[in-house]
């Protein structure tokens, strides 16, 4: 069984999504909220592809025999760039002072898609930092609401440390304690949720700039050339 991804044949096993099949074939479809370890979520829409002329999220659409999928077309990459710009302006992303810089999927994807500017007016939201936990830091300024931490904590760690609250543009991540402090949850630095964040929200304390800028994950090769 196979389908066409940008004109190239990609095999798949029935039940796989377009994203899963592409990953197995070593093909890159831009994505942020998807991770092969967790159930698909479909919220960032970076993986938007065109399936036989219709738009869909590659991480949620099932692969079908013979379908024709556009992935890295100019039209789609253009839309993806706009989505990235939306994610940048709705939060506060100052890469020069972010520990995640160089290891950050949002940034790396923006490089891959040649995002030269945030384009839109910034929202400059007022978002907190939570340093209460002895080993972990939460900087909500950079949250892209991908819910990977929500899924990791719930499905892998069995803990439910993270959840979303609010609605619309006021949607925000909360932790599972009435005080709102991470220290008052059962979060441990060894949890899967502690290392799942694709951006610089959930950070290990005192690790900071251990690996020098220039030697980090996406300094070595663009995200599209790395294993997903």
């Amino acid at each position: 069984m196979s389908f066409l991804l940008d004109g190239e044949e990609v095999p798949f096993i029935p039940g796989q999504t377009i994203m899963e099949a592409a990953r197995a074939a070593g093909k890159y479809i831009p994505h942020l909220c998807w991770d092969h370890e967790f159930a698909p979520h479909g919220s960032c829409k970076l993986c938007t592809v065109k399936v036989d002329g219709r738009f869909g999220a590659a991480c949620t659409v099932a692969a079908h025999e013979g379908m024709n999928v556009d992935n890295r077309s100019a039209e789609l990459d253009d839309k993806r760039r706009t989505l990235l710009q939306m994610l940048f302006v709705e939060g506060n992303h100052f890469c020069p002072s972010c520990e995640k810089s160089g290891d950050c999927k949002l940034q790396a994807t923006a490089y891959e898609l040649k995002m030269m500017s945030p384009h839109f007016d910034h929202f400059f939201p007022d978002r907190p930092v939570d340093a209460s936990h002895p080993e972990l830091l939460l900087d909500f300024n950079r949250c892209i609401l991908c819910e990977l931490c929500v899924r990791a904590s719930r499905d892998t760690d069995g803990k439910n440390v993270f959840a979303l609250s609010g609605r619309g543009i006021k949607t925000h991540l909360i932790v599972n304690s009435p005080s709102g402090r991470l220290a008052d949850t059962d979060m441990a630095a060894t949890d899967r949720a502690a290392s799942v964040c694709p951006v610089g929200v959930i950070l290990r304390k005192r690790r900071g700039f251990k690996v020098a800028i220039g030697n980090r994950t996406y300094d070595k090769a663009p995200i599209s050339e790395q294993p997903q």
Partner: peptide
């Protein structure tokens, strides 16, 4: 629409606010 977007997906969460602005 900006008031009522559920906030789940990027294009609508941010897009409805951008359109409103």
């Amino acid at each position: 629409f900006a008031e009522e977007s559920c906030g789940f997906c990027t294009p609508c969460r941010v897009g409805t606010s951008l359109v409103k602005n």
